[in-house]
Structure formats: structure tokens, C-alpha cells
Computed example of a mutant assay.
Amino acid sequence: MHHHTQALAIAERVAAELAPGTLGIGLFGSVAAGTDHPQSDIDLFLVVDTGAGTEVRQVEGRMVTLSRKTRDDLEGGLAHPWEAVTAVGAWRRARILHDPDGRMAALQARARAWTWEAIGPEADRWAARELVGLAEEVHKIHGMLVLDRPRAAAANRAVLVLQLGYALAVSGRLTCESENDLWDAVADAEGPDWAAAWDAAAGILPADHETGCRAALALYRHAAGRLTPHLDAGERAVVDTAGALAA
């Protein structure tokens, strides 16, 4: 595991260099969890008052991603459903490298005690709104297939493949240590029909373009069946229309 030892050493050295200009630094992702491979990037979160953003560096042949976030940004990871799916698990496995006022340790403690009950109603509403918003992609896929515009249909299909996974993860109250784990977690939770359709839509299984697009539409119908109880009457009309097109 030389690559892991090297990654930890790089993370600690970069953190020590950047510490004077930050309010805290944490190592996240696969390196923090010990599941990294030689090409894994080294994810460092830097707590700052201003100047949030992302910077990527190359250090000793390894990619180091520096995500500068404010305290509000970090708090949001435990408060917003779409972030909590991966943020909670990431915080639980994070290695805190610089924490002068103890705020990062406090956030990690909150993540380890966190449950979906804290934001349950908001989580269901977010997932429902996401489904409604994605109805547009269903209309676009249907239209682009009719117009024989395969690239546009493929782009809309990709949107469904990725974003429906997050909606069902929130609805299913899943948490993952990283986005890399999300797709398998959703497939395991939703069962073989979802998994087969996702694999075809994402290109894992051999399928022609139209079959892949129809698999993405099947994902929408599956998600609609799961999220219908959280839709109001107006939202239900939008989703039902999209579902009819998807069928």
C-alpha cells in the first residue's frame, strides 16, 4: 500500500503549508477511508471565511483537489438532502488535519450521530421536486428520438441516469462514503429491474442507442412509482404525463 502511505504524507504536508490561511483542514474521500488506488485524487477540504472554490494541484505525480468551503457550506452538507447522501458518510470517515477551534471535530461528531429523521420531510419534498423537474428530460428524449437526433437524446438520457439516482437515494434514506459508491447502493436498494435498466441506460450492458434511451425512460417510470406519495396534485399531473410518454 505504498500509494496510500504516499497519499497520506502528501495530504499532511500540503495541509501544514496551507494551515495558516485556513480555519480548518480535513482529508476526505478514498484516501481518508483507506480505499484509494494509485490514481485516486487526494481530497482536502479547507475551511475559509471567504474565497470558496476548488483548485486542483499536481504534487509528486498525485492529483490534489483543494475544496475551499465556508462554515455555512460545510453545515449545509448535513442539512441539504442532495448533499447529505454523500456528505454524511464522508464526514464520518474524514481525517481532521487542522482544527484550531474544534469546529471540524464538532461537525464530524454531528455526522456520526446524524440520521435522516433530522430532515425527513424536506428530503421527501426535494426528491419529489427533482422528479417533477426531470419530466422535461423525458419529453426531450421522446422528442429527440422522433426527430432522429441521437446526440441530444443521449445527453438527456445521461441526465436521467445520474439525477434519478440521487432522488431515489434521498427517498430511500441512503448514505454513501462517496459518489463512487452511490450507484451500486441505489441498485442494491431498488432491485434487479432498476439495476438492469440503469446498466442499459448507462452503457454497461450492450444495447443500441434507442434501447438505452428507453431504459432511461423506464428508470423514470420506476422513480415515479416510488415518489408518487410525495407529489401534490399539480406535480402528479406533470409526472403522469411524462410517465405516459415514457411508456
Rank of each mutant, 00 (worst) to 15 (best):
residue 19 A to P: 08
residue 87 A to N: 12
residue 206 P to K: 06
residue 227 L to M: 09
residue 199 D to C: 06
residue 246 A to Q: 05
residue 182 L to G: 10
residue 147 L to S: 12
residue 138 V to N: 01
residue 113 A to D: 14
residue 238 V to T: 13
residue 111 A to W: 00
residue 247 A to K: 03
residue 182 L to S: 11
residue 209 H to N: 08
residue 90 A to W: 00
residue 93 R to H: 12
residue 38 P to E: 07
residue 73 D to A: 09
residue 16 A to N: 02
residue 29 G to I: 03
residue 57 R to Y: 05
residue 231 L to Q: 04
residue 88 V to N: 09
residue 205 L to F: 09
residue 235 E to H: 10
residue 241 T to M: 02
residue 120 G to Y: 03
residue 116 W to P: 06
residue 18 L to K: 04
residue 231 L to F: 07
residue 243 G to Q: 03
residue 152 A to E: 15
residue 222 H to V: 00
residue 154 A to N: 11
residue 81 P to M: 06
residue 165 G to H: 05
residue 126 W to L: 14
residue 34 G to A: 04
residue 147 L to D: 13
residue 14 V to R: 08
residue 134 L to N: 12
residue 19 A to Y: 07
residue 211 T to R: 11
residue 146 V to M: 09
residue 177 E to Q: 15
residue 37 H to R: 15
residue 149 R to F: 10
residue 155 A to G: 04
residue 50 T to V: 02
residue 25 I to V: 07
residue 175 T to L: 05
residue 109 A to I: 02
residue 19 A to V: 06
residue 30 S to Y: 05
residue 99 D to I: 00
residue 63 M to R: 13
residue 123 A to L: 04
residue 32 A to K: 11
residue 52 A to G: 11
residue 184 D to A: 15
residue 208 D to A: 10
residue 140 K to F: 00
residue 124 D to F: 07
residue 223 A to V: 03
residue 152 A to W: 12
residue 222 H to G: 07
residue 54 T to G: 06
residue 164 L to Y: 03
residue 228 T to H: 11
residue 88 V to I: 15
residue 224 A to K: 04
residue 5 T to I: 14
residue 49 D to G: 12
residue 94 A to K: 06
residue 156 N to L: 00
residue 142 H to I: 05
residue 173 R to K: 15
residue 48 V to G: 02
residue 10 I to T: 09
residue 176 C to T: 15
residue 186 V to Q: 06
residue 187 A to V: 01
residue 234 G to F: 07
residue 183 W to C: 04
residue 150 P to T: 06
residue 63 M to S: 14
residue 183 W to M: 14
residue 143 G to A: 13
residue 230 H to Y: 14
residue 194 W to M: 02
residue 155 A to R: 03
residue 146 V to G: 01
residue 170 V to M: 08
residue 245 L to T: 07
residue 101 D to E: 10
residue 193 D to P: 02
residue 234 G to M: 12
residue 90 A to F: 01
residue 61 G to I: 13
residue 44 L to G: 02
residue 8 L to G: 05
residue 188 D to I: 10
residue 166 Y to R: 12
residue 190 E to A: 10
residue 217 L to D: 00
residue 203 G to F: 09
residue 244 A to S: 12
residue 17 E to S: 08
residue 180 N to I: 08
residue 141 I to E: 00
residue 68 R to W: 12
residue 221 R to I: 04
residue 141 I to H: 02
residue 48 V to N: 04
residue 167 A to S: 13
residue 71 R to N: 07
residue 72 D to Q: 14
residue 112 R to S: 15
residue 103 R to Y: 15
residue 80 H to Q: 14
residue 68 R to C: 09
residue 161 V to T: 02
residue 153 A to G: 12
residue 99 D to Q: 08
residue 120 G to A: 15
residue 2 H to Y: 06
residue 69 K to E: 13
residue 164 L to S: 05
residue 159 V to M: 11
residue 60 E to A: 07
residue 188 D to G: 03
residue 243 G to C: 11
residue 76 G to A: 14
residue 151 R to H: 13
residue 84 A to V: 00
residue 128 A to F: 01
residue 2 H to F: 08
residue 220 Y to C: 05
residue 167 A to N: 05
